[in-house]
Amino acid sequence: MLQQSFNLFHTECSSAAWDTTLLEHLHTGLHQQLDDLDACLGQVMEEEDPALGRTGPTLAVKRYFQGIHVYLKENEHSDWGWETVRVEIMRRFLC
Rank of each mutant, 00 (worst) to 15 (best):
K62C: 09
H77G: 03
Q43F: 09
C13A: 15
T55A: 09
L34A: 06
S15Q: 15
V70I: 15
V87I: 14
V85N: 01
G56I: 07
L8T: 01
H69D: 10
V87E: 09
H77A: 04
F93Y: 13
L41C: 08
C95F: 10
N75T: 11
G67I: 00
E48L: 11
I89G: 02
T20I: 15
Q43G: 04
Q33E: 15
F93G: 06
T20Q: 12
A51G: 10
K62A: 14
L26A: 05
G56W: 04
L34T: 03
A16S: 09
K73V: 02
N7W: 00
R86W: 04
C95S: 13
R54S: 12
P50Q: 06
H77I: 01
E88S: 15
M1I: 08
L23W: 02
E76H: 15
L72I: 03
H10Q: 07
P57I: 11
T20Y: 08
E12W: 06
T58R: 10
C13H: 15
D19K: 05
L8N: 01
E83C: 07
F9N: 04
V61L: 12
P50T: 03
T55L: 06
K62F: 07
L26W: 01
H25W: 09
C13L: 10
D38T: 09
Q3K: 14
W82V: 03
W80F: 06
E83I: 09
W82P: 02
L94H: 12
H31N: 12
E76T: 11
Y71V: 06
C40D: 09
H69L: 06
E83S: 08
H25G: 03
V70F: 13
F93Q: 11
D19A: 02
V44N: 00
Q33K: 14
Q66P: 00
M90D: 08
H31K: 12
E46A: 07
M45Y: 00
E74Y: 04
D36K: 12
L37E: 00
G81I: 06
L72C: 01
E48M: 09
G67E: 04
A39D: 08
F65E: 00
E47H: 03
